[in-house]
Every structure is written in C-alpha cells, then in structure tokens.
Nucleic acid binder design. Structure first.
Length: 431
DNA sequence: ACCAATGATTGACG
DNA sequence: CGTCAATCATTGGT
C-alpha cells in the first residue's frame, strides 16, 4: 500500500498547510496583545498541540484532543479560527473545481468494455470472443483456441474485478476514515462540509489514478492475449489432406493459368472448407514456390496431372460409351464444369510433359506410370483426343500461353528440366 | 533439437 | 485490387 501512504502524505500536507496559515495569521495579531504574555503563551501552546496532533499516534492524539476540547481557551480560539477561515475560505473554494473526465481513462474504459473485461459478467465476454472470432477470419474449426482464449479472458476479468473491488473498498474505507477524522477535528477547528467534500474528491482522484493503472495493465494483458491467440499467423493449422488434394488438383490441372477466378476460388473454398482468402494465399504460395523450384514439384505435378487425366479419361470413356455422337468437349464437363475450357488445354500440357523427355527425367512412381499408360490407352481410343495426342507439336509452349507472365516463366523451365533433370536449374533451396 | 514444409503477412508494383 | 517476392511463425517429421 505504497500509494495509500502517498495519499496520506498529500492529505497530511494539505491539512498541515491549513494549520500553518492559521498559525501564521493568528500569532502576530492576537487579541490586541492587551492580555499580556500569559495569554499569548496559552494560545501558542494550544496551536502547538493542534499542529503536532498529526504527528502522534491516534490514542495520544485522542487524549490530547480531549484535553484541548476542555481547555478554557478553546471557544475563543475556535472563533478566531472561524474568522480567519472566513477570510481565506474564498480563495480555497475557488481554487479547484470538478475537472472533466480524463479522455485517456474514457478510452481505457471503452476498450475494456469492448473486450468484455468490464461490463456485464458473462454476456460481454462471449460477445467479445465472438467478435474476435469474426475478426480473425471466421474459420469454423478453431473453437478449441477460442475456448482457451475465453478462459484466459475470464481469468483476466476476474482478476480485474477483484482488484477493482479491493481498490473500491480501500477507497471507501479510507474516505470514511478521513471523514471521521475531519469530523473529529471539526470540534477543534472549523471545517466546512465543502472542505470535507474537497478532501473526498482528492482521495477519489488519487484512487482513480490507481484504478487507471489497473485498467491500463488489464488492457495490456488483453492485448497480449489477443495477439497470442487470435493472430492467425500464430495459430496456423495445416489444411486437411483432402483440402490440399483439391487445391493441388486444381492447380496442376490449370498449370497453364493457375489463377482461379473469384467464383472458382469460392467453389474451392467451399470444397475445402476454408476461406476464399486462404485459397488466394494458397495459390499465391503455390505459384511462387512452384516457379521457384519446378524440379521439386515435378513428381507432384505428374501425380496430379495423371489423376486429373484419369478422371477426365473416365468421364470421357463414360461419355463415349453413353453417346458416340457427343462433341469432343463434352467429356470435360463431367469432372468440373466451371473450368472445362482450360481444363482440356492443361490436360494436354500435362500429357505433353508426361510423354516427353521431362517425364523420363522425373522419378515417377510405377503406379503413376501405369496410370498414365492406361490413360494413354483410354484416351487414344477416345475419338476427340486422338489427333491432339498424336500431334504434340500442336501444343507448343507459345500456343498454350494465354497468360504471358506465368507461361513464359514456367513452360521453358519445364523443358529445361527435361534435359537437365529435376531441380538442377532452379535449385534455390535456400531459406 | 533440427529442419523442411507450409499458411499467413507485408510491401512493392502494375 | 490482385499478384509477386520476401519473410515470418508455426507445424510436423526425423
């Protein structure tokens, strides 16, 4: 309770100052000085006793006070003090008035209210947690983190409230204590209600400054908690295998132009149960990392290319079986309607790399090779694709390019990797 | 404990 | 505003 000691000190200083004023004024003038030295001595004695009251223990002071109250000079002194006070009172009264609410304190209060620390017990907390959840991106699977966050927030709230209560209690206790003291003193010296009010105001201001410190540190704690639990970077979860599968499938089947449209992103997001921005992030990362080190991704590329191709082939075969009269583009609509146009082109791109030198260079699992083989069979029997597969030249890098930036960067590298092997050119494995 | 993989963020750029 | 490139911070395998 260091602060309390300081408050005591400041209050003691105030009351002492009051005494010194009285003493300084009363002594030189006196009462005409006609009553002689004996009387002056009496007054000086009383004043000395009053002034030393604050330095003594309560019991001692109590005894002294009693003595003073019974002193024969007391009524006279009291009236003198009243007179002096009347003169000086105006200046004291006008000195300080109600100051406006501290803007910083208001900010802290608002913040605590918003965070759910201050205000109603349970509703505020959950509301804040919900708001935090919304702010963090709103993925559905992080309820564990949120419950953890809520628990910590509740902990902070509890500490805050108990501390606040303690402060309030201490403040009240101290206020009543001071008021009792003042009331007690009012028998010895004149103390107006206004003065008591002022004193109470001083005490409250002191205590509220302590409360502000508490609020400030609570705010800091909440901020730290927030940043720890709600910063998405910190609580990163890897996507599910299924989600990465879907994303990779899309990426490699659109390798010539791996820039999903807004609708495509939404579709993917829905399929992977992630957000659209997460899809964007994923594609951004994927593009850059693929481009940086195509060799490393060759295997993956082949795998997914084969996969999509198999899907397409199955669909194609089914379509062919179903109706021979179908147009060549029909099969693609079976796998994914939205991307049918680019899909066909990319599939051929994939096939091109699979059939060419790059395929031999890459270490592809036997099962993939088998898949590709069967795939080739299936496709070669599919009416619409025969020509395309036979005439690889038709899909020169330039021909496929619909997007200069991506194609120029990747397709030639893919060719290079065919001759030099995977990962030899862009082996930028630093990091 | 180390390290590669990976999701997210940031700042620059067109 | 979307993308790229660099970077951060965490995860997960060893």
């Amino acid at each position: 309770m260091d602060d309390q000691a300081r408050i005591m000190q400041s209050i003691g200083g105030v009351s002492l100052a009051g005494h010194s004023v009285q003493g300084g004024m009363a002594l030189p003038h006196g009462h005409d000085g006609t009553d002689g030295d004996g009387r002056k001595q009496d007054i000086g004695d009383i004043l000395h006793q009053i002034m030393t009251i604050t330095d003594q223990s309560l019991d001692e002071a109590q005894a002294k006070k009693h003595g003073l109250n019974c002193h024969r000079m007391k009524p006279a002194l009291f009236s003198v003090l009243c007179e002096i006070k009347e003169k000086t009172g105006l200046s004291i009264r006008g000195a300080q008035e109600e100051d406006p609410p501290d803007p910083q304190l208001m900010r802290l209060d608002n913040m605590l209210l918003a965070e759910g620390v201050a205000g109603p017990e349970k509703g505020g907390g959950s509301a804040a947690a919900a708001a935090a959840a919304a702010a963090s991106g709103g993925a559905a699977d992080n309820s564990i983190e949120h419950s953890d966050y809520r628990a910590k927030l509740t902990q902070i709230r509890q500490i805050y409230h108990t501390e606040l209560e303690k402060y309030e209690q201490a403040c009240n206790e101290f206020t009543t204590h001071v008021m009792n003291l003042l009331r007690e003193q009012s028998r010895t010296r004149p103390i107006s209600p206004k003065e008591i009010e002022r004193m109470v105001g001083i005490i409250h201001r002191k205590f509220s400054s302590i409360q502000m410190q508490l609020k400030q540190s609570t705010c800091e704690a909440v901020m730290i908690l927030r940043s720890r639990f709600l910063d998405a970077r910190r609580k990163r979860r890897n996507f599910s295998k299924q989600a990465t599968e879907i994303l990779n499938e899309y990426f490699y089947s659109h390798l010539s132009n791996p820039y999903p449209s807004e609708e495509a992103k939404e579709e993917l997001a829905k399929k992977c149960s992630i957000t659209v921005s997460q899809v964007s992030n994923w594609f951004g990362n994927k593009r850059i990392r693929y481009k940086k080190n195509i060799g490393k991704f060759q295997e993956e590329a082949n795998l997914y290319a084969a996969k999509t191709a198999v899907n397409a082939a199955h669909a194609a075969a089914a379509a062919v079986q179903n109706s021979q009269a179908n147009s060549p583009t029909t099969p693609n609509s079976g796998s994914s309607g939205c991307f049918s146009l680019t899909h066909s082109g990319d599939m051929f791109l994939s096939m091109q790399s699979l059939n060419g030198a790059s395929y031999q260079g890459a270490q592809v699992g036997a099962n993939v090779q088998a898949q590709v083989d069967t795939l080739r069979h299936v496709i070669s029997r599919t009416a619409g694709y025969n020509d395309a597969l036979g005439g690889n030249t038709m899909y020169s890098p330039r021909g496929i390019n619909t997007n200069g930036g991506w194609q120029d960067a990747t397709t030639p590298s893919s060719v290079i990797s065919a001759t030099e092997g995977p990962g030899s050119v862009h082996s930028d494995t630093s990091n």
